[in-house]
Write a protein that binds this DNA or RNA. Structure first.
Lengths: 276, 276
DNA sequence: TTTGGCCATTGCAGCCCGTGCAACGCGCCG
DNA sequence: CGGCGCGTTGCACGGGCTGCAATGGCCAAA
């Protein structure tokens, strides 16, 4: 829309792939050196890029502060935090909070489960805060997609089918029609199960958090490595997860169950049954 | 430098203080609505801002990815990571890596110490990754300032004295002349001690990491809550810290000790002594 | 249902400012 | 010393940014 800003942001993105000299940066976005210089200077004044002693530019520290503020702007996070902590505390499994943004799942918060020392020393990667994953690939995504207006869902699925390579359906992803069937099932039961954060070594349950208008605005998930927690054990926690999601919904000023859930009685009954 | 980009970045920063409608956003930076609309649209196309269903704008998820990339761009981080982990592993105290950026300390990495359950449940805030603190306030900052060219140091100290309220000297900070004396001491001994990350409940030791030209490019710190680790215990780890910083310097292709350290023999001897 | 207000959005003319060329300074290497 | 590469600066041109004003859509009050 705005050429100058567009170029500045493009140059910023290009620096994400590694530091660059002025000339390199100019070449990356195809403008004259002097143009790139002015853009980079402006970005530098705001702290978005930093100039190294060797005269090369790299991304600046301002991004950290802004990313932090971006998290804090999303107030569902504040409301949900104690509930997530409580759920994790009780069973020791990892609990996460996510929203849908621009068609992909954005993880907002995470309370790490208490597991015996990590085997391979890689406790990260899966659903870390700030991570994005394609919506069709995870249980969390399915819950969020299930409540999308038909129009937006169609647009999203078209994009999924169109781009075969680019963010195409990864492990567990399905073509549009298959996914539609899954979403119908999610609507029917009010929750979703499946591979959690992209890695087939983690299984996952997801339940919607519902806002004031009856739409799901976020999703709460509980997940665990299947070796440590067999399917059966995680499934037993479903009522607790639904209960937590419901409590967050109410605390946020929403309805306890989503508009589209055709099984509100069932889900609620499951919770009550497990309480006795 | 570039008016349009400047405005776009200002609007982005203003969104950090909370979501805003188009009109609010325009008012915050003092431009016409239509101008703000174009800027916000451009930012939105790049994912830097996100439009909520209620038509308000907030910071977008792209910032997370870019902040992550910003971390990865700083390659000293990759080099240092295993050394930090090893140092923490051996003694169980928190180890951090930081650099100087635009006159303040930017924390790049952190390996959390193994402490008995947090008393008040607030394990964060102090020196989390991506946090910035004024350089004059911490041991890490003093180490980094000690190697600054006289010209830059003067500029920095002037700014410190000029702005009384804005980022003025917090707990432990000193006026320019006092700080200069401290920096001289740091140069003499080759390391610094003091309050770690802004909180007087944590004590801290800091040692420089030296690049190819003999300048300190980063700092490695070790810190612990004084109740759990009295000064004496932390001080006993000084040789290990210096040894780690030296190892990182060598791994990065730098010199083992900074140009300005007048006590290289002393520090090295301390390391050797503790090794026996 | 109508009406009015509020806000986002769009079209448009004026002119500001962003752009690229070319020249300059500086450090480096042969 | 002189050539080269790169960052930086001055400047004229015109593209695109700006702000005004008008339109459209939504909601609430009448």
């Amino acid at each position: 829309m705005s050429q100058t800003v567009d170029r500045a942001l493009t140059i910023l993105a290009s620096l994400g792939e590694g530091p660059a000299s002025l000339e390199q940066a100019a070449a990356r976005i195809g403008v004259h050196k002097s143009t790139a210089l002015r853009l980079l200077r402006t970005l530098q004044e705001h702290g978005f890029v930093h100039r190294q002693p060797d005269h090369r530019y790299r991304l600046g520290g301002r991004l950290f502060g802004l990313a932090q503020q971006a998290l804090e702007c999303i107030d569902i996070r504040q409301v949900a935090a104690p509930y997530l902590a409580s759920l994790c505390e009780r069973y020791g499994h990892t609990v996460q909070l996510a929203v849908l943004e621009d068609g992909s799942v954005l993880y907002l918060d995470r309370v790490e489960g208490r597991y015996p020392a990590e085997p391979s020393g890689a406790p990260e990667a899966a659903g870390r805060i700030g991570t994005r994953v394609p919506a069709a690939a995870s249980a969390a995504g399915k819950v969020l997609l299930a409540d999308l207006p038909e129009e937006q869902l169609t647009a999203l699925l078209d994009g999924l089918d169109d781009g075969p390579g680019k963010a195409g359906p990864p492990a567990g992803g399905l073509r549009a029609d298959g996914l539609r069937a899954e979403l119908a099932a999610v609507r029917r039961q009010g929750w979703a199960a499946g591979q959690g954060g992209y890695r087939d070594s983690v299984d996952c349950l997801a339940a919607p958090i519902v806002g004031a208008e009856g739409r799901s605005i976020a999703v709460c998930t509980i997940s665990a490595p299947p070796r440590l927690a067999p399917d059966a054990e995680l499934s037993r926690l479903l009522p607790e997860l639904l209960c937590t999601a419901e409590a967050i919904s109410l605390a946020y000023g929403g309805s306890p169950t989503p508009r589209w859930c055709e099984n509100r009685c069932g889900a609620r009954h499951a919770v009550r049954a497990s309480r006795t």
